[in-house]
Design a protein around this nucleic acid. Structure first.
Lengths: 188, 188
DNA sequence: GCTCGAAGTAAACGATTGCTGACTTAGTAT
DNA sequence: ATACTAAGTCAGCAATCGTTTACTTCGAGC
C-alpha cells in the first residue's frame, strides 16, 4: 500500500476482480460462476470485466496465470527433497489459507476452452515433476508424482469444497502426519 | 431385453436420460451441462426430463442415487481387507469403464442444492469408512480412509477428465501397483 | 480553472437457460 | 373398429447469461 487509496485506480480494480474471480472459480467452477456475481462481490461494475480481461474466459485465464505464479513462487526455492514437506504444510494449513487451496482447485476447473485446458495440463505436469522428487524423473517416478498430486487435489476437494468430516476439521498436525506417510511410500 | 423394443417405452426412455445425464454431469459438471444437450444425446424430447424427473436438479439427484447403488453393489460383498484391491482394479481399468469413474466423479460435482450436497457427503463418508478397512474405524483410521478416497478421486480427475500424461495412458498393471503401495502405507 | 483522457456507470442487446402448457400420436383394452 | 390413456412433440414463456454501446464522472497536467 505505497499509494494512498485513490477512488479510481485501474490496477487496484483489476486486482480486486482477479482475487474475487479466483476464489469463486475455484470453489464453484467456471460455469456456475457469474460475471455479475464476481463484479458485485468486488464492488465493481460488470462492464469492467470485459474492459480489463476482454471476456469471462480471459478473466479465467488470468486467474490461472496468477495461480501458476503462486505455485512457482512457492516451490522455486525449495529443494526437490523438501517439496513434499512444503506441500504437506500448505495442504494441512487452516481452511483460511485460501490462496494455496484455490490455486490447486483452479487447476481442476475447466472453462471448456481447449487452449486453456492445454495450459492447465502443462502446469499440472510441471507440479507432478517436482513432486516426483527428481530433476529428471523417469516415467515411473513421474507417475508416482502424479498420484501424490492427485491425493493433494482430492484432499483439497474433500476438505475445503465439499467438507467431508473428519477430514474437513482435521488438525494440521495429524493431516501432515498422514500426508508425510503417503509421500514416503510414493516418492521417497 | 425380455421385452421387444417398443417404440414408446417410458422406462427405457427414463433410463436413456439417466445414462446420458450421469456421464455428462460427471464429466462437465452440473452447471456446464444443459438439459437440451442431455435430451439431444439421448434422442429424446427435452420436456420429458421435467416429466420424469420434475427438474434438472431432480435428474441430478436421480443420477446420484444410481451412482450410490452402483457403489453399494460393487462393495457390499467385498471383505473389508479386499476393498483396496477391488478399488485399485476399478481405478486402473481402461478409460472405457465409464460407469465406475463417472460414479466417483459425480460425488465431487455439486448442483448447489444444500440437501443434495448433504446426501453426497454422507455417501463419501460411507465409502471412506469402507476404505478405512475396519468395521468400526476410529477417527484416525477414518481420516486415512478419506485420504485414500481423495487419491482415488484425484486420479480419476487427472486421468479421465483432464487427461494428464503419463497418468492418462498408464497401463492397468503399473497403476494398480502404485495404488496398492499407497493403500499399504495408508490403511494396511 | 479548463481540458481531455482514463475510469466507471447504466441500460439494453441477442442468445441461451430451465421449464410449462396445449397439442399430437401411438398402443392397448374392450 | 373405437375410445381412452400414456408417451412424446412443439412452441414459447420468463429469467438469466455474457457482452456491447453510449454515457457520465473523476483526476491529473497545462
Amino acid at each position: 500500500m505505497t499509494d494512498q487509496p485513490r477512488r479510481r485506480n485501474a490496477a487496484q480494480t483489476r486486482q480486486a476482480l482477479l482475487d474475487v474471480a479466483r476464489a469463486r472459480f475455484a470453489r464453484h467452477g467456471y460455469a456456475a460462476t457469474t460475471v455479475r456475481d464476481i463484479a458485485d462481490e468486488a464492488g465493481v461494475n460488470v462492464a469492467l470485466i470485459n474492459r480489463y480481461f476482454t471476456s469471462k474466459e480471459g478473466l479465467f485465464e488470468a486467474c490461472l496465470g496468477m495461480a501458476v505464479t503462486d505455485v512457482d513462487r512457492a516451490t522455486e526455492q525449495v529443494e526437490h527433497r523438501d517439496i513434499a514437506e512444503v506441500m504437506a504444510r500448505r495442504l494441512a494449513g487452516a481452511s483460511g489459507d485460501g490462496r494455496t487451496h484455490d490455486a490447486l482447485l483452479l487447476l481442476v476447473r475447466s472453462s471448456g476452452d481447449a487452449r486453456i485446458d492445454e495450459l492447465r495440463r502443462s502446469v499440472l505436469r510441471a507440479i507432478s515433476r517436482k513432486l516426483a522428487g527428481a530433476a529428471e524423473p523417469d516415467e515411473a517416478a513421474l507417475l508416482r508424482g502424479q498420484v501424490v498430486l492427485a491425493t493433494a487435489l482430492g484432499i483439497v476437494l474433500l476438505r475445503n469444497t465439499i467438507g467431508v468430516e473428519p477430514l474437513a476439521s482435521a488438525g494440521e498436525q495429524e493431516l501432515r502426519e498422514v500426508f508425510t506417510d503417503l509421500i514416503r511410500a510414493m516418492v521417497a
